[in-house]
Design a protein around this nucleic acid. Sequence first.
DNA 1: CACTTGACCTGTCCGC
DNA 2: TGCGGACAGGTCAAGT
Length: 290
Amino acid sequence: MPELPEVETVRIGLARLLPERAFKAVLSLNAKSFPNTDADTREFLLGATVVDVRRRAKVLLINLSSQYSLVIHLKMTGQLVFVDSSDVRFGAGHPSDSLIGKLPDKSTRVEFTFEDNSKLFFNDQRKFGWVRLVPTAEVPNIDFMRKVGPEPLSADFTAGHFVDRLQRRKNTTIKAALLDQTVIAGVGNIYADESLWGAKIHPATRVADVPVPALHSLYTELRYVMNLAIEKGGSSNHTYVTAEGKKGSYMNFARVFRREGLACPRCGTTIVKLRVAGRGTHICPSEQVL
DNA sequence: CACTTGACCTGTCCGC
DNA sequence: TGCGGACAGGTCAAGT
């Protein structure tokens, strides 16, 4: 799923497209994706306008004029795609790899319609993702929000904070610690592998056994790959698309992720895939050793 | 408390 | 072609 850079890319798109639009209708096609309780929806969603669109970790927050917020987690296969009113009616004229003009489809779980007849589709093949309507003041009290760690790209997040927080998980592997959302927010499988390759750390290394200078290098590499990925519109392996229904291009810049059998860009050794922390994991076996 | 594993779903790919 | 199993960008609950 969308990791921090993908969610941030969607946020940037929605922040450009949604503010000041007013909700006119909502259709929930899967109760687990959006448990639409008619009374609340009618009172706090319909007629409300979008104030702004924010992100915390991998969660999107669409703040409404009603003092409620749509809280959205895309999990593995979620998509939020905005379709303008002219495209809702005509659809054609878009590139064949664009979803615009093809929605709703069989993965559509929620369909929002605005007063001007433009639409926002929540698509999610695997149904792990969710949309909730929550009082804005209650958002910080959601379990996930209380437990989630600091934003790795924020200006005040230092290498010192990064090292301190990772070392709280000293007996697990460095990859499991990176993926733990309570340690650092927003890191997922792609950028864990990419940053560990950058810092030349084997993902299965016990946190306590990673030298502090290597953790400092990991901090720099993680911020580098995540910023680069945001610049490239995220990584599209399979289902991920931006709010405009377009794919991101970071996978063209990936050094190890999903590149097993290909050459390491630094030393030419063949990249291998293994399993660490229950996840598919990609490394250069010459440069990342236990 | 720290850590690991399976469950949640649908779709695709790979080997027989 | 069909069928079973493994796997896919994330989190939880339940287990040790």
